[in-house]
């Protein structure tokens, strides 16, 4: 752990984007998330770290209500996006997910052309008035996904034909195409090789200019490299949350220290 590089970056002290208070998650009888409070800031990369099964992915999926698709899952507490409770009865999760995009662990492009992969979101949300508009959105999204140069000549090729890293960047481009405000990433690099990982990490850093990014990761180095804020989860509890630099250099909690030094996890 001594060779761990920590990128020093100034954390913008912008407004709070997502504010979670007393969040509890149950899968049937299992208490998966226990009383988590966290404030996620705008235009910041926030990393969730912790050992397997600690609830970090579960908590991430609460932020755009992806847990709704699981029948036995029950969420309690308040999660506010820009001050509005996303679990309010009046909130349509579909509308919420247009604001809070998500990138998954395994690249999961649609079995369609590269163009259609990106255009799907804008199409169903009616973001483009005509074909030229849509072309523009697709190009912009692919540029933001740092994949435009690689695919601009074969937009009609199937998205599933790309390499793993390219597929993941395609999925990120797809997520940003709908102009979300928050981007959730669930271990986006776990299926990628080191070079593809590096490309995705650089991309995440660029995305910070426009979005609030929340990333779940297994790799502490990755958290240290890309994030400004880090939250450490353990056994369903949020153990420690603070500036990345502080978490990695001067952890307050014993468990955090054990984890980042490799004694547990």
């Amino acid at each position: 752990m001594n060779d761990m590089r920590i990128v020093r970056k100034d954390v913008d002290m912008n407004d709070t984007k997502i504010s979670a208070k007393g969040v509890q998650v149950f899968y049937g009888d299992t208490h998966a998330i226990k009383d988590v409070d966290v404030e996620i800031r705008d235009k910041t990369v926030t990393a969730f770290i912790g050992p397997s099964g600690c609830g970090k992915s579960t908590f991430l999926r609460c932020l755009n209500r992806m847990n709704d698709t699981i029948d036995i899952c029950r969420v309690e507490g308040n999660i506010l996006l820009d001050g509005e409770d996303i679990y309010d009865k009046r909130v349509d999760p579909v509308q919420l997910r247009a604001k809070v995009g998500m990138v998954f662990q395994r690249p999961n492009p649609f079995p369609k052309s590269i163009y259609d992969n990106i255009a799907y979101g804008p199409r169903i949300h009616g973001l483009a008035k005509n074909k030229a508009d849509l072309d523009e959105i697709v190009e912009k999204a692919l540029r933001r996904g740092a994949i435009w140069d690689e695919v601009k000549d074969r937009l009609d090729a199937p998205g599933t034909g790309l390499s793993g890293g390219q597929q993941q960047r395609l999925c990120i481009a797809r997520a940003v195409a709908t102009e979300p405000e928050v981007l959730l990433m669930d271990e986006p690099c776990s299926a990628l090789d080191p070079i593809a990982t590096l490309q995705v990490e650089e991309l995440i850093d660029e995305l910070r200019e426009n979005f609030s990014v929340v990333i779940v990761t297994h790799s502490m180095q990755q958290a240290a490299r890309v994030s400004q804020k880090t939250a450490f989860f353990h056994l369903g509890n949020l153990v420690e949350y603070g500036d990345t630099e502080q978490i990695f250099t001067n952890p307050q909690d014993e468990r955090t220290e054990s984890y980042i030094t490799g004694r547990i996890g």
Binding site: R97, A98, M102, F104, R106, N108, Y120, G121
Partner: peptide, 11 residues
Amino acid sequence: SIRDAALGVGA
């Protein structure tokens, strides 16, 4: 994952 992908972009 295909269902997740579609729901994830707000379908």
